Simulated scan of single mutants.
Amino acid sequence: MTTRRSWDAHLAVGATGMIGSRNAAEAGKRGHEVTGVARSGKDGTLAADASDADTVARLAAGHDAVVLAVSPPQDGIEAAESLPEVGRGVLDGVRRAGVRRLAVVGGAGIPEVSLGVRVVDTPGFPEDALPPVRAQVTLFELVRDNADDLEWTCLSPPAVITSGECTGAYRTGDHQLLSDGEGNSHISTEDYAVALVDELQRGELTRRLVHVAY
């Protein structure tokens, strides 16, 4: 009889996005049973509205963890409203399904460049990027303030995250923005996925924000 590890089966919400697809691929390479969910239902995923708690509960049933990697819409009003709705739907749904482990893909605007000053609040932050980034901050705060009963981790990427090489190397921090010796804050989507699946398996950094970068 084969004993299933606690991280062997997870529901990937937002599995077709730039980051979500890499997360799902990395988990699959390690032998996870990944059920991909996306609003569009493309690329072999299940079409579903993650803001509907009943739907999330039905899809999450029988899984060991849920990964929430939904990208916010670029439209200001839609981003501000829809991403928190997804967060509430997922939190309610995982509870109904009896799933306690939740990994959330955070936004690059969440880490702090100085005490109490987040990236999104820095002078000169691009105006057109503010709505979706602020929506990701709201999602993080929603989880932080309402999920004490869950083993959640929010992994925030750095200022620059693009498709690239998978080296398996990365650093983790807490609220402070990580940068390299030249002041660059970056990581590839592939190495971000390595960090996320590592934490999903280890479960060492729960109920906290984790910043990931080179």
Rank of each mutant, 00 (worst) to 15 (best):
residue 154 C to H: 05
residue 29 K to L: 13
residue 151 E to W: 06
residue 87 G to Y: 10
residue 43 D to I: 13
residue 4 R to L: 07
residue 127 E to S: 15
residue 2 T to R: 13
residue 206 T to P: 09
residue 181 G to W: 10
residue 74 Q to I: 13
residue 95 R to C: 04
residue 97 A to E: 07
residue 200 L to T: 11
residue 127 E to C: 15
residue 117 V to E: 02
residue 152 W to K: 01
residue 97 A to R: 07
residue 36 G to V: 10
residue 15 A to G: 10
residue 137 V to Y: 01
residue 13 V to Q: 03
residue 214 Y to Q: 15
residue 168 G to N: 10
residue 136 Q to M: 07
residue 141 E to R: 05
residue 28 G to Y: 12
residue 77 I to H: 09
residue 40 S to V: 03
residue 32 H to A: 14
residue 116 G to Q: 03
residue 29 K to R: 15
residue 190 E to C: 09
residue 160 V to M: 10
residue 21 S to G: 05
residue 183 G to S: 06
residue 195 A to Y: 04
residue 135 A to C: 07
residue 193 A to I: 11
residue 81 E to M: 15
residue 47 A to R: 06
residue 144 R to H: 06
residue 30 R to Q: 07
residue 127 E to V: 13
residue 8 D to K: 14
residue 90 V to Q: 00
residue 21 S to K: 06
residue 61 A to G: 08
residue 181 G to Y: 11
residue 54 D to G: 14
residue 164 G to R: 08
residue 162 T to V: 11
residue 212 V to K: 00
residue 161 I to D: 00
residue 62 G to R: 09
residue 53 A to I: 14
residue 34 V to Q: 03
residue 172 T to V: 07
residue 186 H to Y: 07
residue 103 A to F: 09
residue 116 G to T: 03
residue 161 I to Y: 08
residue 17 G to H: 02
residue 18 M to N: 09
residue 47 A to C: 05
residue 212 V to E: 02
residue 72 P to E: 04
residue 151 E to I: 08
residue 171 R to F: 02
residue 66 V to N: 02
residue 113 V to I: 06
residue 139 L to Y: 05
residue 5 R to M: 13
residue 137 V to N: 01
residue 11 L to Q: 09
residue 176 Q to C: 00
residue 122 T to Y: 00
residue 46 L to G: 06
residue 145 D to T: 07
residue 29 K to M: 14
residue 59 L to S: 10
residue 57 A to V: 15
residue 87 G to C: 12
residue 188 S to V: 15
residue 70 V to W: 13
residue 140 F to K: 08
residue 152 W to Q: 06
residue 94 V to W: 03
residue 8 D to A: 10
residue 212 V to Y: 00
residue 115 L to I: 15
residue 76 G to F: 14
residue 24 A to C: 12
residue 101 R to H: 02
residue 129 A to W: 12
residue 56 V to H: 04
residue 179 S to A: 09
residue 4 R to E: 06
residue 183 G to M: 08
residue 200 L to D: 01
residue 131 P to E: 05
residue 4 R to Q: 13
residue 148 D to K: 15
residue 192 Y to Q: 05
residue 152 W to P: 11
residue 8 D to Q: 13
residue 46 L to M: 11
residue 160 V to S: 11
residue 168 G to H: 14
residue 114 S to I: 06
residue 160 V to H: 02
residue 180 D to R: 11
residue 110 I to Y: 00
residue 152 W to C: 04
residue 138 T to K: 10
residue 156 S to R: 05
residue 110 I to A: 01
residue 114 S to E: 00
residue 208 R to F: 01
residue 44 G to E: 04
residue 207 R to Q: 05
residue 104 V to H: 04
residue 123 P to G: 03
residue 46 L to P: 13
residue 140 F to P: 01
residue 108 A to N: 07
residue 65 A to S: 10
residue 193 A to D: 07
residue 205 L to V: 01
residue 97 A to M: 12
residue 11 L to K: 04
residue 179 S to Q: 08
residue 84 P to I: 11
